[in-house]
Each structure stands twice: as structure tokens, then as C-alpha cells.
Amino acid sequence: MSGLITTPNLANPDALYAELVAMAGDLSAEEALNRAARLILLLANHIGDPAVVSHAIQLAVAADQAD
């Protein structure tokens, strides 16, 4: 597969979650979407490997049908 890590890989998941909430927590949906889009682009560029990003996109889309 692509090498995308989907097993727990964060030393402190609660802290990261809180940081992500704080990034856009007090914004409107539209403003938050803009900030989230910037974050995605920064991370995607860091990852570089298009297969890893494509795999993550697939999993993000597939989670729609999760329940």
C-alpha cells in the first residue's frame, strides 16, 4: 500500500486535538474551512508522496459511509 500510517502514531493525541480545535475554534464555518484548507496544503506538501495523500483522501471519503 501507500505507506500511510493509520495506526496510533501520536505521542499526545489529546494535545494535538486541542491544538487543532484552537486553530479555528472561534471562527465561522467559512473561515474555519479556509484555515483547514491551508493546513491540508502545508501537510500535503510536506508529505510529498502523492500515493500517501491519495490514500488519505480515499480514507477520508470512505469514512462518510462509516455508520
Binding site: 467559512e30 474551512l33 479556509n34 491551508r38 496544503l41
Partner: peptide, 24 residues
């Protein structure tokens, strides 16, 4: 649509200061 607009805005916002976004 809102998502395509947000992504386009993000590319333009980042491109001013970050070289990686300019080719997008």
C-alpha cells in the same frame, strides 16, 4: 462551491509567503 473556493483561497493566501504553493 464552498470547498473549491476555500482551497483556491488557501493556495493564494499561502503563495504570497510560501514558494511551495506558487506552482499550484
Amino acid at each position: 462551491g464552498p470547498w473549491a473556493q476555500a482551497l483556491r483561497g488557501a493556495v493564494l493566501d499561502l503563495a504570497a509567503t510560501h514558494a511551495f504553493a506558487r506552482p499550484m
